[in-house]
Design a protein around this nucleic acid. Sequence first.
DNA 1: TCAGCTTAGGTGACATGTCAACCTCGGTGG
DNA 2: CCACCGAGGTTGACATGTCACCTAAGCTGA
Lengths: 176, 176
Amino acid sequence: MTATTASELAAWRAYSTAHDQLTAHLSRELARATGLSEADYRILDALLDAPGGRMRALELRWVLQWEKSRLSHQVGRMARRGLLGRESCAEDARGWDITLTPEGREAGARARLVREHSVRRTVLEALGPDRLAQLAETAALLSARLERVAEEDPSCRAARAEAFPEASEDPGPSPR
Amino acid sequence: MTATTASELAAWRAYSTAHDQLTAHLSRELARATGLSEADYRILDALLDAPGGRMRALELRWVLQWEKSRLSHQVGRMARRGLLGRESCAEDARGWDITLTPEGREAGARARLVREHSVRRTVLEALGPDRLAQLAETAALLSARLERVAEEDPSCRAARAEAFPEASEDPGPSPR
DNA sequence: TCAGCTTAGGTGACATGTCAACCTCGGTGG
DNA sequence: CCACCGAGGTTGACATGTCACCTAAGCTGA
């Protein structure tokens, strides 16, 4: 099992590099065409699909799988640019609704066109429907696996035990 | 054909999300176990494979596909932490060799174990050799496609380091 | 009703990434 | 020899992401 893993790791690495280049390319195209960052786009995209262009911050965080502070900072910046608004939430006084301003809606719509064009040209045409379907399946497998791994090991201790067989319980060098 | 594209775009999106979660997970595991960021790891990993643990900054930039300022900042930070050293380059007085310190080499080796374990557990075991090979093939297709697209679109040259420095044309609305 | 826990969200400090301006060295044509 | 241009790298300002901590509002049980 460990014997075959070397080439498998190499495959993973090659894939990983290609993916990074692809996403960098997509981001650059979007930024050049619309002046929006990838993060901006994710938020606008999510809100465009929400009824009334409005979504609870909590829900947005769930959809995007972002940390709450990341969302908070990002929304703050975009609100300052006039793309979003914050309105207090009816159901829960702790929460906030994030809303699209008219400018935000327009910018988002334009960004969607750009992104759609990019993806079609660089991904869909390169892969074709069959390979794309394969890819989606693979993604589903990975998601499922991730869920299981994260569940059984929330503190990620296994990876650490492998690297430090002698000391398995101290919290390690201060992260970052 | 455009009719089918909607579901294809959705597939792309699902895949994209899964990938983001996966890389986030891998980074977190690495950071928790070793205190190294993904960027730290990339550099250490590259240098571990270089003869003498030493590589020209130029070459490192090529291998990692990083902007030169990004490399410079990152190396500066890692040097401050005692993981890397900078030595003037014999062949070209403008250049620098980036070198692994003993601590850097050790940290890198540990990080490799951690990462290898993570990838094996979350990716290789989830996909199996066949699906992984598929994935590598798909990655190769995407890389090839990207290369073509970047070539026919002159404003995407930023991706390809500074192969062709020249005035950039109108960049659209002010980025960011 | 009120103490004590949990949850939604924000804040500030700091790490990282990007852009543009800058410095220095190497090569080249006069 | 030197004026000049282009390449390798650094720097500083700023955008973005993360972590730890803070506040306030909901919830639960005695």
